[in-house]
């Protein structure tokens, strides 16, 4: 797997996202910029200027017309992907840590930070795709307040039936996406260890969480039942599920401030591949100089990209051995 190095950010990466066809990759970082890249050659298509603080999160609408971003400047912005212009800005009292379009693109959720006097919230807007993209509503169609523990990440389940949120205290909760009612609560990660990432499977029936407790978990959307546990030796910032192959990719690393010595051995800055079903670690990919903050997998399952504390995005195309790798029992099953 020969990586393509995308060096356009000056600060650490926060999130990266592929477009549904995998042609473009969007990246956001602490340096206020939103970048768009051609995945074929790693050239930069352009940047989207407008945020006044670190950009925490990014998502692409399923029809690839709109881009949503959330930032430390307390704004969510919608961008016309083609023209690069900002078509809508929603303001909040606190920073926005996560945005995500629903499966059909008609809704957008945003997770807002908790701060003195403000609870952490999850809000939802309806999204319109008319001729004039700037024609958007200011009205929130849903607002959930997280009273017990703030949400750090959130995502839409299959059929946009639930909103699934990961929390600061390590729990994962399931909300009715229509009413906002809290339906289920599960202690998925060790108590007090934050959920740092939550990514859905392609069919959105289950998802993977990455925890500060050095574990990643595969959880069902319907019952929040833990299907699988992947144990790593370092706090995890991100986890992704690969289509095509039954793998998951985990990323993390001891943050510089938590490392007790300057010893580089402490870092463990590698992308780790695990078998999704057997929970075994299969391999690691090195390259970053700092913790991995975000990993995204190409929607066709042919490549993945990782964004690091070191300010780089590394794109890796999977090669033949990756696709050939199979356990004996899988081969057996494939023959049947």
């Amino acid at each position: 797997m020969r990586p393509v190095l995308l060096s356009g950010h000056e600060r650490s990466l926060n999130q990266i996202k592929y477009t549904p066809d995998g042609d473009l990759l969007f990246s956001v970082a602490k340096d206020k910029n939103v970048c768009a890249w051609f995945t074929s050659n790693g050239e930069r298509l352009g940047t989207y200027h407008g945020h006044q603080g670190a950009v925490w999160t990014v998502d692409v609408s399923p029809n690839t017309r709109l881009l949503a971003t959330g930032a430390a400047d307390n704004n969510v912005k919608l961008w016309n992907i083609k023209t690069g212009e900002c078509v809508k800005t929603w303001g909040f009292p606190t920073a926005v840590k996560r945005v995500e379009f629903s499966e059909d693109g008609t809704q957008l959720l945003a997770v807002t930070e908790k701060r003195m006097g403000y609870l952490g919230t999850i809000v939802v807007y309806d999204i319109r795709y008319g001729e004039d993209l700037s024609d958007q509503t200011d009205e929130q169609s849903l607002r959930i307040e997280c009273e017990r523990s703030k949400a750090t990440v959130a995502a839409w389940s299959y059929l946009s039936k639930y909103i699934i949120a990961g929390h600061e205290d390590g729990t994962v909760s399931q909300y009715d996406a229509k009413s906002g009612e809290l339906l289920l609560d599960a202690e998925v990660h060790d108590d007090g260890y934050q959920v740092n990432d939550l990514q859905m499977s392609q069919d959105r029936t289950y998802f993977i969480t990455a925890g500060k407790d050095k574990q990643a978990k595969l959880v069902t959307c319907r019952d929040l039942e833990i299907l699988k546990t992947y144990k790593a030796d370092t706090p995890l910032n991100t986890a992704a599920i690969t289509p095509k192959k039954d793998f998951v990719i985990l990323g993390g690393g001891q943050a510089a401030m938590d490392v007790t010595t300057t010893s580089a051995r402490q870092g463990k800055f590698e992308a780790r591949f695990y078998h999704k079903i057997f929970e075994d670690e299969i391999g690691r990919v090195r390259g970053h100089f700092g913790p991995l903050n975000t990993i995204a997998v190409h929607p066709q399952g042919t490549a993945y990209a990782s964004g690091g504390e070191d300010g780089y995005v590394r794109m890796h195309a999977f090669d033949k051995p990756y696709f050939d790798f199979m356990y004996e029992v899988e081969r057996e099953q494939a023959r049947r």
């Binding site: 299959y158 059929l159 039936k161 069919d203 029936t205 289950y206 069902t220 319907r222 299907l227 039954d246 079903i277 057997f278 356990y327 004996e328 029992v329 899988e330 057996e332 099953q333």
Partner: peptide
């Protein structure tokens, strides 16, 4: 070990089938 893997694989496939049906039903 092989038996255990076989079991895990079958269990997973069964789960995926079940969930698919469920989603279809909704």
């Amino acid at each position: 070990i092989v038996e255990e893997r076989r079991r895990l694989l079958e269990e997973w496939d069964a789960w995926v089938r079940m969930v698919k049906e469920d989603v279809k039903a909704e």
